[in-house]
Deep mutational scan, measured.
Amino acid sequence: NITNLCPFDEVFNATRFASVYAWNRKRISNCVADYSVLYNLAPFFTFKCYGVSPTKLNDLCFTNVYADSFVIRGDEVRQIAPGQTGNIADYNYKLPDDFTGCVIAWNSNKLDSKVSGNYNYLYRLFRKSNLKPFERDISTEIYQAGNKPCNGVAGFNCYFPLRSYSFRPTYGVGHQPYRVVVLSFELLHAPATVCGPKKST
């Protein structure tokens, strides 16, 4: 009989979030998941669920729940959905087409922007091929755009693959930082360890 609440607040209220290319994953298990708490945590810009209804979450049980978190800019949030393409979905964080879970995003301009520009958040701009779903690539190998090998040196047709967002508070919403948490629900042929409040007794 599990009584402890799932530590969603640790994920959502973390002081620092990860850069999207090096997104963070927390496995959540053996706890009571009260998803209604999430609705009250922040004024969400996005709370979209796929393959599951957000209002039914509190009635369900899962084997595992994974919470992935990272920062992107406002106009990239739409890429965090099944079947999307674009720089983020292709080279940084890719959801599977049959994704079961929820994408939660909110504006973090007050936390993640600086007047002089916050350069701490990076994204991958160049990659030889698209990522597979939930693949994480943290390599910093020089990207070869031409025929000549780069031998690890940046220059003509040889690019450092990561680029930094420079978040400034005066930017338009599309270029402001957004914190994203992706909850993916895993149903294996194994005992369910993460249940809503109704199912945990």
Rank of each mutant, 00 (worst) to 15 (best):
N1R: 04
N1T: 05
N1D: 07
I2G: 11
T3A: 04
T3N: 04
N4Q: 09
N4T: 07
L5V: 10
P7L: 12
D9T: 11
D9M: 09
D9Q: 10
D9L: 10
D9R: 06
N13L: 10
N13H: 07
R16N: 12
R16H: 00
A18G: 13
S19H: 15
A22Q: 07
N24K: 00
N24A: 05
K26Q: 07
I28W: 02
I28L: 03
S29H: 08
N30H: 07
V32W: 06
V32K: 04
V32H: 09
A33W: 12
A33Y: 06
A33S: 11
Y35T: 10
S36H: 06
S36T: 03
S36E: 07
V37Y: 02
L38V: 03
Y39R: 01
N40H: 13
L41M: 00
P43G: 10
F44T: 02
F45S: 02
T46K: 01
F47C: 05
F47M: 12
F47V: 00
F47T: 06
S53T: 02
S53E: 02
S53H: 14
P54W: 04
P54F: 03
T55F: 08
T55A: 00
K56I: 12
K56R: 06
K56A: 12
N58H: 09
D59K: 08
L60R: 10
T63D: 02
T63H: 05
N64Y: 03
N64E: 01
N64C: 09
V65L: 05
Y66N: 10
I72V: 14
R73M: 10
R73A: 04
T85N: 14
T85H: 00
N87T: 01
N87V: 00
D90M: 13
L95V: 07
D97H: 08
D97K: 11
I104L: 07
N109H: 14
L111R: 14
L111F: 05
L111Y: 09
K114C: 15
V115K: 15
V115Q: 15
V115E: 15
V115F: 15
S116D: 03
Y119C: 05
N120D: 11
L122C: 10
L122M: 01
L125S: 12
L125V: 00
K128V: 13
K128A: 07
S129C: 12
S129E: 06
S129I: 11
K132V: 11
K132G: 08
K132T: 05
F134W: 13
S139G: 11
T140S: 02
T140L: 10
T140C: 10
E141K: 13
I142Y: 01
Y143W: 08
Y143I: 08
A145V: 02
A145S: 11
N147F: 08
N147A: 08
K148A: 12
K148D: 08
K148I: 10
P149E: 08
N151R: 08
G152D: 13
V153Y: 03
V153H: 06
V153S: 11
V153D: 11
A154N: 03
G155D: 05
F160L: 08
F160C: 13
R163S: 08
S164V: 15
S164E: 11
S166V: 14
S166L: 14
T170Q: 11
T170W: 15
Y171F: 05
V173T: 00
V173F: 02
G174R: 08
S184R: 14
S184H: 12
S184C: 13
E186D: 10
E186Q: 05
L187C: 07
L187T: 00
L187Q: 03
L187K: 00
L187R: 00
L188M: 07
H189C: 13
H189Y: 08
A190S: 00
A190C: 06
A190R: 08
P191Q: 09
P191S: 01
A192I: 10
A192C: 04
T193N: 00
T193L: 02
T193H: 06
T193P: 02
G196M: 11
G196T: 01
G196K: 12
P197M: 09
P197H: 04
P197Q: 04
K198E: 02
K198C: 08
K198N: 04
K199E: 05
K199S: 00
K199L: 03
S200V: 01
T201K: 00
T201E: 03
